[in-house]
Design a protein around this nucleic acid. Structure first.
Lengths: 231, 231
DNA sequence: GATTGGATTTCGTCA
DNA sequence: TGACGAAGTCCAATC
């Protein structure tokens, strides 16, 4: 990994065209050839970048560029597309290289997966007398998160989201349309369950006869902990 | 901006819990307090990070940590949530600070906007005898990208995407449902136009009687250039 | 300030 | 390998 702090300007062309005016920035060149241009603020997203696989070519400035104070020109060309990043470096304030080695990568807990697990274990949160049929119930257009039966034996399809917006309601609607063609299941009712449900999603769901259920993740986790401790 | 290359491990807790095993990484501390942990590969996304506003506290390792070779402990706490990032630094290979100043930011050309402009100017791409009614035709749930009329005077609503997937078809479906309630327009047919259309989106569109149209951006731009040169 | 839709999205997972 | 859904998504325009 090479770290450069320099006054620079840049141009990107590929899926769009964009330019970065002259300023002091951090340039990171990774071992796989990818390049990041970071400013001293904003989020984790660089101002501009080139994803691997790509090649960095460093060359001399033209006479005209040199007259304007350019000392190096970096050209980063993507291998599989026309994406290209050109950086003009003026004053270089820092330049160092480091051996980092391979990273073992991030290990993370599930979120929606964990929520699904918890709701399956606490299916009575849907209502008294509910029973689980199965998680990831397969359909032609993909698996439904949870299929359950209510106290009267009626089928209930559950779509789970961390944040419930309009897309999730559309998704559940498609599943319901398909499931209701199955005479062994129909009629199938829908439940849209999420930690947070956006107002527009709630309106759309209600309009389509889909019940909305807000889940308290911490409470569900707490119950789960208590139950675990009992055994 | 502070740049540190160090052997480290890290834990994140907040909207999820995650851990980073011991490895050599780049740590970037930005002027706004945000912290990025980068490996020597992958994309522009850091392995882990903390977004601003947040505060970095550097403190001494506990005796137990020191025994394991930890030389510094960084705690990054988000100001408005419980998000927290803890980094244990072992050997520090590099540590430098730099003044970058404020960045003017990225200036970019439009993409979907440009595509819309080009298609409006080359509306005959939809078919012989087509005429433009208007771009951004307003409806109660938002503007339709392009409204046109075919050679027979029938209304046609166009949804434009750079990459056409199922969401775009859903969006156009909602527009068509609404537009077809207007007796002055109905019947309104739909065209789903994109530089690339995903198979599932094509299936769904076709199933709903929506025509799919793949656009050649470069060719459209080329035609535009030629036309510009004529005037 | 909340919401919505796009992104040079990136990143998994699964068929 | 391609497609699809999720993301600690981020981000800007709009209401």
């Amino acid at each position: 990994m090479r770290l450069v702090v320099a006054d620079c300007s840049a141009r990107y062309s590929g899926r769009l065209a964009a330019q970065l005016p002259f300023a002091t920035r951090l340039l990171v060149v990774k071992a796989d050839g990818s390049v990041l241009l970071h400013s001293d603020g904003g989020s984790y997203k660089p101002l501009n970048w080139m994803s691997p696989p790509c090649t960095l070519l460093v060359h001399e400035p033209s006479e005209e560029q040199a007259d304007q104070g350019v000392t190096q020109v970096w050209t980063v060309q993507h291998h599989k597309s026309d994406d290209r990043l050109e950086i003009e470096l003026h004053a270089v304030h820092h330049d160092s290289a480091h051996e980092l080695g391979v990273d073992p990568g991030l290990i993370k807990d599930g979120v929606e997966a964990h929520l699904q697990e918890l709701l399956a274990a606490q299916i009575e949160l849907l209502g008294s007398g509910y029973t689980l049929v199965r998680r990831e119930y397969p359909t032609a257009i993909g698996p439904v998160d949870i299929l359950a039966r209510d106290a009267q034996g009626g089928s209930v399809a559950v779509e789970l989201k961390r944040r419930g917006d309009i897309d999730g309601v559309e998704q559940l609607t498609r599943y319901l349309e398909l499931l209701n063609r199955d005479p062994l299941l129909a009629p199938v009712r829908g439940v849209f369950a999420a930690q947070e449900i956006k107002p527009q999603a709630r309106v759309l769901a209600t309009d389509r006869g889909i019940r909305c259920l807000v889940l308290d993740y911490d409470a569900m986790r707490g119950v789960d902990d208590v139950e675990s401790r009992l055994f």
